[in-house]
């Protein structure tokens, strides 16, 4: 059930976009493909949709091998980063497009489109053109258009990438609620770890044309399989040559056994979070994340001597085998 991608390889000329990638997506789940740009996540999504033909491997959707099928026969819904709205058609016509292609009776088309317009909260905007909608509204229209034909799977390619931060946050929460209502198997491509963590049940982290790890958001954060995953799903800093999460460091203003001595170079107040940058003696510079309620915060300022020690779980030993982590 769901989607199975097996041993997918895809090359564009000399560039290998997907290198023997296998992934299973359970039916009814919302899975995020997370990774930096160029990691192959969009290509994998397009291979599932049939918009790219893989060089090797197969794609199975709901137990049917779809590798050789054209996109229009696969029963997928696809939402593009830049909406791909049909510019010369109204909202109604956009959403009705897939139904009309399937020769759905007129009355049924009207009924279904109106239902979807309500579902994506565009009530009263049926006669508008895409140019008269905001970015967020356009993307909701695109989502309704994809859902109209009752696809087996819904594929979203950086759907909120072109929207501003506030609208993004709103739409994310809305998408999660929508998924809980509609239950269609959904794959979301994103480069934003917060977005993936917030929306998805499962996250597949991709890097360099391969899948690094597939896990729930919580497991991904707590037991990353590699230094890359660890660096990608949360901030990292270096203490005493070891990679640690910046909130898992304790600071003292008096000497402590085994702690690294240094001086505060800067204190940054970010609302609830307070970020302290420290020049450590004989070690790399580091930074520490504190809450504003931490009593030590009032004692900190540039030039104050501090002693830093790790208090969190040690980094998994196999994590250091990989490349340098990406700073976030």
């Amino acid at each position: 059930m769901g989607i199975i991608a097996e041993n997918i390889t895809k090359r564009f000329g000399d560039f290998t976009a997907l290198d023997d990638v296998s992934l299973e997506i359970p039916s009814g789940s919302l899975t995020a493909l997370l990774g930096p740009s160029g990691s192959g996540k969009s290509t994998l999504l397009r291979v599932i949709a049939g918009l790219e033909v893989p060089d090797t491997g197969r794609v199975v959707i709901d137990d049917v091998d779809r590798t050789a099928d054209r996109p229009r026969d696969r029963g997928v819904g696809f939402v593009f980063q830049h909406y791909a709205a049909f510019r010369h058609m109204t909202v109604f016509e956009n959403i009705a497009f897939g139904l009309r292609v399937r020769k759905t009776p007129k009355a049924r088309v009207r009924e279904r489109v109106e239902e979807l317009i309500d579902l994506v909260q565009l009530t009263g905007m049926a006669k508008r053109y895409p140019s008269q909608l905001s970015g967020g509204q356009r993307q909701r229209m695109a989502l309704a258009r994809a859902l109209a034909v009752e696809p087996r799977v819904l594929l979203l390619d950086e759907p909120f990438g072109a929207l501003d931060a506030l609208v993004r946050r709103e739409l994310r929460a809305w998408l999660r609620r929508l998924h809980d209502e509609v239950h269609v198997t959904t794959v979301l491509v994103t480069h934003d770890q917060e977005e993936a963590m917030e929306v998805a049940d499962r996250i597949a982290v991709m890097d360099h044309s391969r899948i690094e790890q597939v896990a729930t958001p919580r497991n991904l954060y707590e037991s990353p399989a590699s230094a890359f995953v660890m660096g990608f799903v949360g901030p990292l800093t270096v203490l005493d040559g070891q990679q640690v999460r910046p909130h898992e460091i304790a600071l003292d203003t008096a000497p402590v056994d085994g702690a690294v001595r240094g001086f505060v170079t800067r204190v940054i107040h970010l609302g609830f979070e307070v970020r302290v940058e420290i020049a450590a003696e004989g070690h790399d510079d580091l930074w520490v994340q504190l809450s504003r309620h931490d009593p030590i915060v009032s004692a900190l300022g540039p030039g104050v001597p501090v002693w830093a020690r790790a208090v969190g779980n040690p980094v998994p030993s196999h994590a250091s085998e990989h490349d340098d982590p990406v700073a976030v």
Partner: peptide, 15 residues
């Protein structure tokens, strides 16, 4: 993108 969107929605090349 618009052409791909139409294709995924089931439209034939001539459509």
């Amino acid at each position: 993108e618009q052409e791909e969107a139409a294709e995924v929605l089931g439209a034939s090349p001539s459509r």
